[in-house]
């Protein structure tokens, strides 16, 4: 379970998050919708401790995120996988080394075992045989899939997705949505996905939250979200379905 409680965050005098409260149940996929620039990436970075909130706290499995204790923070991150908006693959490493880096640095597995797991994760995302390519040789959709495989490498309890379909054509976006849906069914990781793409949100989310002007203004299942009379949500949905 991930509980976000009263999170506030400003950069200089620009307040991005003004008290965000949200609970994501165990095994659930929560999608946070919001316009670009509304603070979605900032919120994810606060959850995984890349940024520190000005006030409020995040509880992961009941434990507060230890922002000021680097050692504990690294230990907590071992339970997380994160997919970045532009995949953020290490461009000096091959695809296989990207996927296996966390295992190599954080576990005592030998090279053979790591390579077996890397192959398995690449197969999961439909990229078997791509181990020896460099990130520069991949298309946008392939990069996202490698990013996914890397996020899955340590069998995380929690997965964070930052705009999984942004920058992809609709077909590739659909492929990624299905892939994420499958992974959620298979691994049941507690997940938060942020996006401004409502089609993706409806496809991958168990529940949907809307982040607007620094606060969560709506939370509900996909059906509830489609049916809601909340004007901000309606406006957001109409803005994209037309």
């Amino acid at each position: 379970m991930i509980e976000i409680k009263g999170i506030e965050k400003s950069f200089g005098d620009h307040q991005v998050l003004a008290g965000v409260d949200l609970t994501v149940g165990t095994g659930e996929t929560m999608v946070i919708l919001g316009r670009s620039g509304c603070g979605k990436s900032v919120l994810l970075k606060l959850v995984i401790g890349l940024l520190k909130p000005d006030s409020g706290q995040v509880l992961v499995g009941g434990e507060p995120v230890p922002y000021d204790r680097p050692g504990d923070l690294f230990r907590m991150r071992g339970k997380f996988g994160m997919l970045f908006q532009a995949a953020a693959l290490f461009d000096s490493l091959t695809v296989g080394e990207n996927v296996g880096l966390g295992l190599k640095e954080n576990t005592s597995l030998n090279a053979g075992e790591i390579s077996r797991r890397v192959k398995e994760k690449l197969l999961t995302v439909g990229l078997d045989g791509a181990e020896f390519l460099k990130p520069a040789e991949l298309s946008g959709g392939m990069k996202k899939r490698v990013g996914l495989a890397r996020a899955l490498a340590m069998d995380p309890e929690y997965i964070l997705y930052d705009e999984p379909t942004t920058g992809l054509d609709p077909v590739m976006g659909g492929v990624i949505n299905e892939l994420i849906r499958d992974l959620q069914h298979k691994f049941r990781a507690t997940s938060i996905a942020v996006t401004h793409d409502i089609h993706s949100a409806f496809r991958i989310g168990d529940r949907i939250a809307l982040l607007h002007e620094g606060r969560i203004v709506h939370v509900g299942t996909v059906a509830e979200t489609k049916a809601t009379r909340n004007p901000v949500v309606e406006e957001f949905i109409e803005g994209q379905s037309g």
Binding site: L50, F74, R77, A86, A88, L101, E105, N106, M154
Partner: peptide
Amino acid sequence: MKVTEQIDALETLAID
């Protein structure tokens, strides 16, 4: 690496 979030990615993999 910083502007393409690769440094953040390292941190999320629990690598200092």
